[in-house]
Design a protein around this nucleic acid. Structure first.
Length: 519
RNA sequence: GGGGCGGUAGCUCAGUUGGUCAGAGCAGAGGACUCAUAAUCCUUGGGUCGUGGGUUCAAGCCCCACCCGCCCUACCA
């Protein structure tokens, strides 16, 4: 793409709370978002991909105190470990934002001022049963007075005390109808539909105003005009999506180009904040709303929820070490319908690696390339007239780009990959049916045609799986003789292999996962 | 309590507006082939489609009840 008229595409992950170390759930979200970002780049879009860490709040402060360091030091250290995870996962983010970044402080204060100027921010008292441990208020009905005379939050078994605190409020209640109207007008604003419905139901029941500042700690963005208050999580955190584009400079080229965001990828635990608070804030601030909030599910280890107490929290780096980066990227996106909860297990991962990657794709590439090397002088063979069988598999492969594009548009990664692998299954059957190893002795021109057709299918597949497996697909395109650059973006999808061009020594791309030998 | 979703072959799941809808992949069994990463291809699935009723000429697909599982029901992120 040499055009300077590329359509912008802005995608974000949620920013992580770096109160601890990153786990597989964090990895899952950035991998999926990365695949989306890469797909769009290959498809000719001018992509901006933002991810980062949300570093303010009482918990960060407390953790830092416990460790005897400043919250800034803790944030720096843990944010670095998140960024490192991104790099280990090959995440192609354009900016790693931190809510402690100076430009983000500016952005958060500016959106506050805008909401205030719009009459949606007012000072009042926030009162309720407060759990220090949960850093959360509970309503009376969610607490109970127990025999020890202490009142507890029913859900979390933590003691609560009646607390009144001066707080700024956001007039969320005023946005109920506007939000519902937007949901009606933009039925794809939230996805998957089941999650979006939960959000809509929530709004339909009525919205209360939102407490948006705290006075009990100071590790946060100062509220403009009142140094006693710091912003309370959501105004601060959500605004990172604006900061990334250059806000508050709404005249900047990047803001004009990338805002509003096309997709916010988030976990199901924070759907409400992204699908309700966030658009309300933006409406109040007079800013455009993002196109879509894509809500993904959680990953369970063998169907069991990950938790520190169970000791089944796996570091992303361990996964990468054990199975390889591309394998786990493929596994997560192929195995779990994006939006649903998913489960991973050693057996399931190995199954995907061996069956899908090594056998169906890797072996097809290797067997065809190997024959080309031995029988076609390591050059892309010249095909003869295509038979119906040739044409059928070529057409199936050619049809994949629009199909995959459609699925990616909705972040249905598993369906996209399923469609690709269906064609690979057909291609393997085609290859076996045509028996080029027999044709070698009986009909060489026909053999060359079959090999050409197969290589062409593999080439198209290799192009399409680049967003999911950047490294492996790159090596696959290497052995197909496809140079970096124009031949590897989607505009090359319909530009077939050039007969007579030299091919490098074929090399297996997807080794089988072999169980380490027992001693 | 209220609301939502799901319960289909050993496993993971597809099944549009009711009428080849009883399916796919994986695992298992048998066979073929040898180009290839012990890979590939072919054949092989009689599962009361959670339970019991009902509507209909016809129901996984509609209605009712029930059983089981999961999710949401506001200020930790």
């Amino acid at each position: 793409m040499t055009s300077t008229e590329q359509t912008p595409f802005y995608i974000t992950t949620a920013i992580s709370y770096p109160n601890g170390v990153p786990h597989i759930g964090h990895a899952y979200e950035v991998i999926a978002t990365d695949a989306m970002a890469r797909f769009k780049r290959l498809d000719g879009f001018d992509v901006f991909f933002l991810t980062g860490t949300d570093e303010h709040g009482q918990k960060m402060l407390q953790t830092a105190q416990k460790q005897g360091i400043s919250p800034r030091e803790l944030a720096q250290r843990n944010s670095d470990s998140f960024q490192q995870m991104n790099d280990e996962l090959g995440i192609s983010y354009d900016r790693f934002i931190r809510t402690t970044d100076p430009d983000h402080i500016d952005a958060a204060q500016e959106i506050w001022r805008r909401m205030e100027a719009n009459g949606d921010v007012y000072l009042d008292k926030y009162a309720g049963w407060y759990s220090v441990r949960d850093e959360a208020y509970y309503s009376e009905e969610d607490t109970e007075l127990r025999e020890d005379g202490v009142r507890y939050a029913t859900e979390t078994d933590t003691p609560v005390t009646w607390t009144e605190e001066e707080s700024y409020f956001f007039r969320l209640s005023a946005y109920q109808d506007k939000l519902l109207e937007h949901y009606r007008n933009a039925p794809d604003f939230g996805a998957p539909r089941s999650r979006f419905n939960e959000v809509i139901r929530f709004v339909e029941r009525g919205l209360e105003d939102l407490s948006i500042s705290r006075t009990t700690f100071d590790w946060g963005v100062p509220v403009p005009g009142n140094a006693d208050h710091v912003m309370y999580v959501w105004v601060d955190a959500l605004t990172n999506y604006l900061t990334g584009t250059g806000f508050p400079d709404t005249t900047s080229a990047s803001f004009k180009k990338y805002w509003p965001a096309d997709v916010h990828v988030i976990g199901k635990d924070i759907s409400r904040f992204h699908a309700i608070y966030w658009p309300a804030f933006l409406m109040s601030a007079g800013l455009e709303l993002p196109g879509r909030v894509m809500i993904h599910g959680f990953l369970h280890n063998n169907g069991v929820k990950m938790s520190k107490s169970l000791g089944n929290v796996i570091a992303p780096a361990e996964f990468v070490d054990q199975y390889g980066l591309d394998s786990i990227r493929y596994f997560f996106l192929r195995e779990v319908p994006f939006g649903a909860d998913g489960s991973y297990s050693h057996d399931a991962i190995v199954g995907r690696m061996n069956a899908d990657l090594s056998n169906n794709l890797g072996n097809l590439a290797q067997r065809s390339l190997s024959m080309v090397k031995k029988n076609c002088d390591s050059q892309v063979p010249a095909p003869g007239e295509f038979t119906a069988a040739d044409q059928q598999i070529l057409d199936a492969a050619a049809a994949l780009l629009p199909i995959v594009r459609d699925h990616f548009e909705r972040q249905e990664f598993s369906r996209a990959l399923e469609a690709v692998w269906n064609v690979l299954g057909d291609a393997n059957a085609y290859f076996a049916d045509q028996q080029p190893w027999v044709l070698r002795k009986t009909d060489e021109p026909r053999m060359r045609t079959v090999l050409y057709v197969t290589l062409e299918v593999v080439r198209r597949v290799a192009l399409l799986v680049q967003p999911v497996m950047p490294d492996a697909s790159s090596r696959l395109l290497d052995v197909l003789g496809q140079a970096d650059g124009a031949a590897r973006v989607f505009t090359a999808f319909d530009e077939p292999l050039e007969s007579g061009s030299d091919l490098p020594e074929p090399a297996p791309i997807f080794p089988r996962y072999e169980v380490p030998a027992e001693v």
